[in-house]
């Protein structure tokens, strides 16, 4: 039973995308197209209630494209969901190695902005946060309970880590001097 729950949670986005798509098609074919495109945001709401996860900018773009081209949005959405599930699996591995009180605040850099994760990690360090990549190949960062970046977290395991330099000093450009630590 535990394995089944873990499998469902690990593939949550694919399952929800498929379910959302089927529901959307059903509603569109019954002449309720607007109701159809509203299905996916409803699943995001459920995710937010269940585990605090929010839709990324890419999710929003795919949802918006649903208004224009349903087949393309379905294919793109399905591929995006598969990527999200892979990220969630790797994120769970990283969280498992960190103290439980911190683990839930560790997030994938993939969702921080529209740039690639490696660039998002640099942006996070420049903004006063700690970002790192582990042996599983996923860039992650950590926030506090109020979603603010944490400057001095030291993960148990990392390959490369970016973080602001002490003493913390905001530069005229708006960022912080930051450093690279490699293991």
């Amino acid at each position: 039973m535990g394995d089944a729950v873990a499998t469902i949670h690990g593939n949550k986005n694919v399952i929800q995308t498929t379910g959302g798509t089927i529901a959307s098609i059903g509603l569109e074919q019954s002449g309720k197209k607007i109701a159809g495109v509203l299905v996916t945001p409803a699943t995001w709401t459920l995710n937010y209630v269940a585990d605090g996860s929010k839709p990324s900018a890419v999710d929003l773009g795919i949802w918006a494209s649903g208004f224009l081209s349903a087949p393309a949005a379905i294919v793109t959405g399905f591929l995006k969901a598969a990527v999200d599930d892979d990220i969630n699996r790797k994120l769970a591995l990283i969280q498992a190695k960190e103290p439980s009180k911190s683990a839930r605040f560790i997030k994938a850099c993939y969702n921080f902005g529209a740039a690639p994760p490696a660039i998002n990690a640099m942006t996070i360090a420049n903004s006063g946060g700690t970002a790192w990549i582990t042996s599983v190949g996923l860039w992650v960062y950590i926030t506090d309970a109020r979603d603010r970046l944490v400057a001095d977290y030291v993960p148990k395991e990392f390959v490369t880590l970016y973080r602001p330099c002490k003493p913390y000093r905001a530069l005229s450009t708006g960022g912080f001097d930051w450093e690279v630590i490699r293991k």
């Binding site: 490696a118 420049n126 450093e179 690279v180």
Partner: peptide, 23 residues
């Protein structure tokens, strides 16, 4: 976006960071 961050990164690492960002 990469330039905005890397300009404040460690001087000795900047070229590697630009290459990582491009990659």
């Amino acid at each position: 976006i990469a330039w905005t961050a890397i300009r404040n990164g460690p001087p000795s690492e900047r070229y590697f960071l630009y290459k990582d960002a491009a990659s």
